[in-house]
Every structure is written in C-alpha cells, then in structure tokens.
Amino acid sequence: MINRFRTSFLAAPYAVWVLICTILPLFYILGYALTNDAGGFTLSNLFAITDAVHLKSLWLSIEVAFVTTIICLIIAYPVALILHNLKISNKGFVVFLFILPMWMNFMLRILAWQIILSNNGILNSILSAIGLPTVHILYTKTAVTLGMVYDFLPYMILPIYNALSKINDQVVEAAADLGANWWTTFIKITVPLSKDGIISGIIMVFVPALSSFVVSNLLGGGKVLLIGNVIEQEFTLARNWNLGSGLSIILMIFVLLSMSIMNKVDESENGGMLV
C-alpha cells in the first residue's frame, strides 16, 4: 500500500500537467464545438465539415499529407539504410547531422524556403544561369509539399534508422548464407524487420502534416488552404471559436482514424510488404 501511494505521489506532477494542459483544453474544445454563439447545444459546428469549402480543404490536407509521407519514406529509407551500413566509428555524429536542422527555428527554415523558391529567388537564379526556364512554384501545392517534406524528413529517418540498427547482423548474413542475393535479402528480411520503424515514421510524418498550417501559410501564401489553415483562421480572423473547435474535433477524428489504420496494418501484416 505504502509503495503504491508513493509511486502515485511521484506521478502527481505529471498528472496535474496532463490535466491542466491536455485534458482540460480538450474539454473546452469539445464544449465550444458543441455550442453556438448564444451557448446553446448544436451539432452544426461538427457538420460544418460537409461545406464544400471545408471538404475541399480537408481533402487537400489529406492529399498533401499523403504525398509528403510517401516522398519522405522514399527518401528516408535509403538514407537510413546508408547510415546504418556506414563503416565508420563515428556513426552517431553523422546521424546527429541529420537531426541538426530540427534544432533550428521552424519558422526560420520555412522562411528560407520562401526565399529560395520565390520568383526571383535562388532556385530560379540557378535555373536561368544554366539556361533552363524558370519555375513558379512558390504559393502552390508543390511548395507546401516540398516544405513539409523538408521539415518532417528527420522524423521518418530516425525511427527507420533505429529499426535497422536493431536488426541482428547475423540474420542478414543468414539470408545470404541461404542463397539470397542483396535484393531478396532486402525485400524478405530487411524491410519486414524494419516495419515498426516504417510505421512509426509514417505516423510521425502523416499526423503533423495533416494538421499543419504554418508551412502552408508561408509557402502557400493563402492560396493553399489546408484544413489547418481554415481552423486557424476561424480562431484568429473570424473569431468563431465554436466553428474552429468543431473542425478541430473532426480533424482529430481523422488523425485517430489514420493511426488506428496504421496499427491494424502493424498487427495483421506479418512479414508482408508495406504501403
């Protein structure tokens, strides 16, 4: 009894933190979502998602998040694999180099992309210098996706790298010993055994990409309205907290849904290919 009391006592600060910073705000959001201006009960804030504008934003968000996740996976897996296979003693340092950008201010990094991608920016200067036509990708879906890939890539690399590090070298050697060439070993052994890392990476990229609004604000310039932007505007410009909360709840449901789908994949796919 004493032990139990002591451990729960030690957890108290955390419990208070969760209560004040997570649970309470959630109830407030739910409260706003289910009421109208006058304070009366309504479901209209939740059903507002069926508005054509909101549906379009939600669909656009899902599309951008999906494409971002796929591109991150395609880039991150080879990078993680190369990092893992590096035959140097200071592997930790190289991994650190990949995480380093995460320590820089998020806004600063995105602003840098704004300058690179602008019509008279670095990218177009380089393109015209080598005689290629310039491109206008700032304030398009492409720019937003590019910014998200850049931002979220480390969150895909790290879990995959960790998963690869946990694979016993002898298991890979055993596959070669039994006649498997590099590709067969990769498909039948390495990928299935790093599945947990792939799933973590997908969740860690897809979820923030789905709800992000800063990247689309800066690189989308108000022309690319993700559901995150719509919610932000409801809170800041329109001052309609009820509608913003309602849409937030819907977005949250989508996030939980996508996570549970990924967990289902994790359980059911025993050794099969992912994605």
Binding site: N168, Q170, V171, E173, A174, A175, A176, D177, L178, G179, A180, N181, I189, P192, L193, K195, N270, G271
Partner: peptide, 17 residues
C-alpha cells in the same frame, strides 16, 4: 549466397518474422 556452404550461427539468427 553462391557458395554451396551453409552456416549454423552462434545466436541461431533465425528470421523472427
């Protein structure tokens, strides 16, 4: 993978999946 030789590894190295 091209040698007609097979190995029993120290830590078994079975495919866990």
């Amino acid at each position: 993978n091209l040698r007609p030789i097979n190995t029993v590894f120290q830590k078994y190295a079975l495919f866990p999946h």
